[in-house]
């Protein structure tokens, strides 16, 4: 078996706060294979962004603390690297794009200036060559008249264009792994479709792996091969995207899928959307037993006291629930 591109084992991340030590991510493990697109899905506060940031060690430590676990990039444990080695990895082997391209780009530097920076840091290219490379990259992400755009400042570009610039920058050193944190959430649907298509085609060209973080199951269906569903700092279900969306095993996954209004679903008069009642639990008030039990329609007595373990199901799937798969 070839080594997975990214192998996260037993990762636990906590934050020191005035209210004590709070656990944001509780012992999650997952693998991302070469050339695969893996989606990490969950609602705000479930720990998906914290997990992603920890891979690049971008969390401020303290207050954050990675208290246990391993993050292996092709077998190399990123948690044991020093600051300098980490910088060599960031933007070179792993790069990241963020939700809001306006805040991720530097507003007082031109696009060209920001793009060249990556090349000068990680390669031996001269400034002139780096500029030429930047033009190539911009045209690869389908930005019209790329040469002129180098002189532009972020505020002169639209949201979609800014996200394209971010993607172009992240591709500068042909990374093995691209982490995309809600890359299309701030964009309009038409632009979202363009960006997703772009990511897809770039992945095919470069053979890189993508870890995409999203709350939009539609996006998952569109580009991911495998999915992890996170709830309250834990992975509650994982599996191949199609199988998971068609036949969810965990009540939370089932609820999420049901609460999305579907286009073309026949609207009955007075029909209501299926909703998940209650709110996402906060960090300091994680429920006992299964963290989903206060919102779960099927919860039984056991769910209040006993935490369900991840179980294996057919077709490389996992889920954590006390109930049998057929009983939902």
């Amino acid at each position: 078996m070839p080594l997975p591109e990214l192998d996260i084992q037993n990762l636990k991340i906590s934050f020191s706060t005035p209210k004590g030590k709070l656990t944001a991510v509780n012992r999650i493990s997952f693998k991302l294979n070469k050339g695969e697109t893996l989606a990490l899905v969950g609602e705000s506060g479930c720990g998906k962004t914290v997990s992603a940031l920890s891979i690049l060690r971008l969390l401020p430590e303290p207050p954050a603390e990675i208290s246990s676990g391993k993050i292996l990039l092709s077998g190399q444990n990123l948690l044991s690297l020093n600051a300098k080695d980490l910088r060599d990895i960031r933007g070179h082997s792993i790069s990241m794009i963020f939700q809001d391209p306006m805040t991720a780009l530097n507003p007082v530097l031109s696009i060209g200036e920001q793009m060249v920076e990556t090349f000068l840091r990680h390669t031996d290219l001269k400034r002139k060559e780096a500029l030429q490379k930047s033009v190539d990259l911009l045209s690869r992400v389908e930005i019209p008249s790329p040469k002129e755009k180098l002189k532009y400042y972020p505020h002169q570009l639209s949201g979609g264009m800014r996200q394209r610039v971010m993607i172009a920058m992240s591709l500068a050193c042909s990374p093995r792994l691209l982490i995309a944190d809600e890359p299309t959430t701030a964009l309009d649907v038409l632009t979202q479709a363009q960006i997703l298509e772009l990511l897809e085609s770039l992945k095919k060209e470069n053979g890189m792996s993508i870890l995409i973080i999203t709350h939009d199951l539609g996006v998952v269906a569109e580009i991911a091969q495998r999915v992890l569903i996170m709830y309250a700092g834990e992975i509650v279900e994982s599996g191949p995207a199609r199988a998971l969306l068609d036949n969810p095993l965990h009540p939370y996954t089932k609820g999420l899928i049901a609460s999305v209004p579907k286009l073309g679903a026949l609207k009955k008069l007075g029909a209501r959307l299926d909703e998940i009642s209650g709110n996402v639990p906060s960090l300091e008030q994680r429920p006992s037993g299964c963290s989903f039990h206060p919102r779960c329609t099927w919860a039984i007595e056991k769910c209040k006291t006993q935490k369900p373990q991840l179980r294996e199901a057919e077709g490389q799937r996992q889920w954590s629930c006390h109930l049998e798969p057929g009983s939902l």
């Binding site: 649907v189 038409l190 979202q192 479709a193 997703l196 939009d216 199951l217 539609g218 996006v219 269906a221 569109e222 199609r242 969306l245 068609d246 899928i257 999305v260 579907k262 286009l263």
Partner: peptide, 11 residues
């Protein structure tokens, strides 16, 4: 175009 751009859940 708007209708087509929506990512769809169903296979």
């Amino acid at each position: 175009a708007l209708l087509n751009a929506i990512p769809k859940l169903d296979s």
